[in-house]
């Protein structure tokens, strides 16, 4: 990728590489993130997501390549940079034996906020996280959604311009997750740049741009909508039949004998999803095959791939 470090974007990464002995955890990654953008990373465990974030935070030195966060080089200027950057890890690093208010105060003091500023921020964060009335409850007794919003509050107590979120919503219920994303976008609208990693496909859909990370490489990078248009190999047919289990056995056999070019055949409840090279071309042959085996077919529809379909398809081609 033709890419230059110019210092004009809040996050710029060029050929960033991290090796641990023989193992290359991050392998020549290049990208930038725009101001106020919510940029997401999707990838299996061990793809290099956390290692990259640690390099961008200045906690790990890159083996090769370079990065700029707000114009600073995290490898040499971590201290100055860290005052302007927020980080929330998947472990919600909160003190369970402190109250919500005390946690905010602790993080505020660690970031060197003045007494007056800290008092103001405490009130703002408690309001933002919807923690009014719960300020004095021990953090350990808060439920997942509150804890998560408190952890976010602590990560932004110092008004960072760039925010790194490493799987921030693991184990949080869907309503709290929606609220959380509302907060993320409220910050992004004020110009905060957000880099977030996730395992949830529906969260990746919420990002303005999504990068697929695999084995330390950036396999694809675009808006969720564009990724679905450009990165899906094959098209998805949804088969509706009164006997999905039998249809499944027939299609599995056809896949193994290569009678039909089926990239994937999978049960989705009462339906079957089959990935074929071209939907219109293979709709009829699929139907004929099932009928010939005595399986009735109610409908075969060409459906849009989900981001997960696209992700799996991209991973399989690597």
């Amino acid at each position: 990728m033709a890419f230059k470090i110019t210092g004009t974007h809040p996050i710029e990464v060029k050929d960033l590489t991290k090796r641990f002995g023989d193992f290359t955890a991050v392998d020549h990654i290049s990208f930038y993130v725009n101001r106020g953008e919510v940029y997401g990373w999707l990838g299996p465990n061990g793809a290099g997501k956390t290692t990259t974030i640690r390099m961008l935070l200045g906690l790990l030195r890159p083996t090769d390549g370079e990065a700029r966060v707000l114009g600073y080089n995290p490898a040499t200027e971590a201290k100055t940079m860290q005052a302007r950057v927020g980080y929330m890890s998947q472990l919600f690093t909160l003190y369970n034996d402190l109250t919500a208010r005390e946690n905010i105060r602790f993080y505020g003091q660690a970031y060197g906020l003045s007494r007056a500023k800290l008092r103001r921020r405490q009130a703002e964060i408690i309001e933002m996280a919807g923690l009014q009335g719960r300020e004095n409850i021990l953090t350990g007794n808060l439920s997942g959604g509150w804890k998560q919003r408190l952890a976010l509050g602590c990560a932004i107590v110092h008004h960072p311009q760039v925010l790194f979120l490493d799987e921030p919503t693991a184990g949080v219920d869907p309503i709290s997750r929606r609220d959380f994303w509302g907060l993320i976008y409220a910050m992004a609208n004020k110009g905060v740049t957000v880099l977030v990693t996730t395992h949830y496909m529906d969260e990746a859909e919420l990002c303005q741009r999504v990068g697929f990370l695999s084995q330390g490489r950036l396999a694809a990078l675009d808006t969720p909508r564009r990724l679905k248009e450009t990165h899906m190999r094959g098209q998805v047919l949804e088969i509706n039949t009164p006997d999905p289990d039998r249809a499944m056995r027939v299609l599995k056999a056809a896949q193994e004998s290569q009678r039909l070019p089926l990239d994937e055949v999978a049960l989705y409840g009462a339906q079957i999803h089959a990935v074929v090279p071209a939907a219109e071309e293979f709709r009829q042959p699929l139907k004929d095959l099932l009928n010939a085996e005595g399986v009735r077919v109610n409908a075969i529809e060409w459906i849009a791939p989900t981001l997960e379909d696209v992700f799996i398809s991209t991973m399989e081609r690597l």
Binding site: L42, G43, P44, H199, P244, M248, A266, L267
Partner: peptide, 17 residues
Amino acid sequence: DPVSRREFWNLLGNLRA
């Protein structure tokens, strides 16, 4: 992770079928 999650569900689908 999403890849393993998909594989696991495909296994369950095959078991049922």
